[in-house]
Design a protein around this nucleic acid. Structure first.
Lengths: 214, 214
DNA sequence: TAGATTGTTAATCGATTAACAATC
DNA sequence: TAGATTGTTAATCGATTAACAATC
C-alpha cells in the first residue's frame, strides 16, 4: 500500500530542468541572488509562474530579497535527482541505439551506460564506445548481477512492447522510450517517451503554416 | 503583410502525429473505417477530444458512420506536410550531429540530409553515411546553390545562438534544435526544440517519486 | 523603518470533457 | 426508418496570471 504524495503537475515538472539551466548560467555570470521578476524577464515567463512553480515543492525564497541562486540549484537538483548517477542499459544496438550511446557520452554524467543488448547475433560481442553488446538472452543474468535503474529502449516499433515486458520482468523500474511504440503497461514502471519523429512532423507543420502566411 | 489563419492550439498539433501513427496501424490491420469512440479506446483518449481535435482542421467524418481511415491519413499527412520531403543540413558534426545523421537514415524518408557543417577543420572533408562535412564558411555558398528547408542544430550550447543567426542570415526558415541553447530570435523563423537531456531529468524525477511511494 | 519581494489566494484563461441536435 | 455517430455548443476542469497581505 502506498501513499501518493500530492505530486506537482507535469507541466511544472517539465519546466524545472529549464529553471536549472538558467540558474547555472546565472552562477557562471557570478550572480548569486535573483528575484522571480528578473528571472522571468530572462526566461520569458511570468514572475508569478516561477513563484507558483517553485512553491509546489517548497518556499525557497526570502521576502524582500529573492532566491539564492546556489541554494535553488541544489534544491532543483535534489527534486530532479540530478547528480545521482543512473545506471542504464540500452536495448537495441542499431543506428538509434548506437546514436544514443554516442550522444550520452557527449553529455556530462548522470546517465551511465553499462551495457547494450540486441537480439542480432551478428552484433553481439561488438563494442560501441567501450560498451559491450550482449545478446538479449543475457539480459536476465545481467540485471541480476548489476543494479540497473533505467532501460533505454531503442528497438523497432514491432519489438517495443515485447521488450518492454522483458524489462519489467527483470525488475527495471524506468524506461526511456526512444522507440515509436506506445508502451501501455499496467505496472508501476515509469515511462518517458522521446518522440523524435513526432517532433519533426510538428516542425514541418509549423514551417508550412509559416509559409502560408507569407 | 500577412493574414494569420486561426491556428490550431499546439497541444492539438502535437497530438496529430500520434493520430497518424494509430491510423496507419489500423490500415495495416485491414480496418478501413473507425469511429471516434473506437479510436479513443485504442489511444487512451476521449472520443470527444478526437472529434474536437480533428474539427480544428475540418469536418472529415460522416455522421452515423465514422471516419474513413485512408482519407483521414491523407488529411493528416497534408496538414503535417508528411510526404513532402524536406532538405536538411546538420550543423555540428560532433557526437550529436553524427548521431542524428545516423538516426535519420534509420527512418523512412521525409528528412533528407544534404550536408553537414562544422567549424573544426579536422572534420571537414569527412563523410558520415555518405554525407559530406563542409566548413561553416561554405554555408553561405551551399545555401545559395541548394534549396534548404531545415537546419538541424547540433552544436554546443555556447555556439547555439551565433549559429542560429548564421542560419537566419542564409535564409533558412526552420530550425530543429537539438542543442541546449534557448534560441530567442525575433525573426519569422520556426523553431522546434528537442530537449533530450531535459527529458532525462523528467524521467529521473518520476523514478525517484515512484520510489518514494513504494 | 521603508522598500522589495515572496508565498498564497483569487481571477482569468485555455483546454478538455460532456451533452445533444443534426444528419448520414 | 431507426441507429449510429458526427460536428458543435455548453460545462467543467486545470493551468496560468494577477493581486495582495505577510515579512524579510
Amino acid at each position: 500500500m502506498q501513499t501518493l504524495s500530492k505530486n506537482a503537475p507535469m507541466p511544472v515538472v517539465r519546466r524545472l530542468p529549464r529553471y536549472h539551466r538558467y540558474l547555472k548560467e546565472l552562477l557562471e555570470e557570478g550572480i548569486y541572488k535573483i528575484s522571480s521578476k528578473d528571472l522571468s524577464a530572462r526566461m520569458g515567463l511570468t514572475a508569478s509562474q516561477i513563484r507558483q512553480d517553485l512553491n509546489y515543492f517548497g518556499g525557497f525564497g526570502q521576502q524582500g530579497y529573492g532566491y539564492n541562486v546556489e541554494d535553488l540549484i541544489t534544491v532543483i537538483e535534489d527534486i530532479l535527482s540530478i547528480n545521482t548517477p543512473s545506471n542504464c542499459i540500452i536495448i537495441g544496438a542499431g543506428n538509434l541505439g548506437r546514436a544514443i550511446t554516442n550522444y550520452i557520452f557527449s553529455l556530462d554524467g548522470n546517465a551511465k551506460v553499462c551495457a547494450m543488448f540486441d537480439s542480432d547475433e551478428g552484433k553481439v560481442g561488438l563494442l560501441v564506445k567501450d560498451i559491450p553488446i550482449y545478446h538479449m538472452n543475457e539480459l536476465e543474468n545481467f540485471t541480476k548481477e548489476n543494479a540497473i535503474d533505467i532501460a533505454i529502449l531503442a528497438v523497432p516499433k514491432t519489438a517495443g512492447l515485447e521488450v518492454a515486458q522483458e524489462i519489467i520482468k527483470n525488475n527495471i523500474k524506468a524506461i526511456w522510450n526512444f522507440s515509436t511504440a506506445d508502451l501501455e503497461l499496467d505496472s508501476d514502471i515509469v515511462i518517458e517517451n522521446v518522440a523524435i519523429n513526432e517532433s519533426f512532423y510538428v516542425l514541418t507543420y509549423l514551417l508550412s503554416e509559416n509559409n502560408k502566411n507569407t
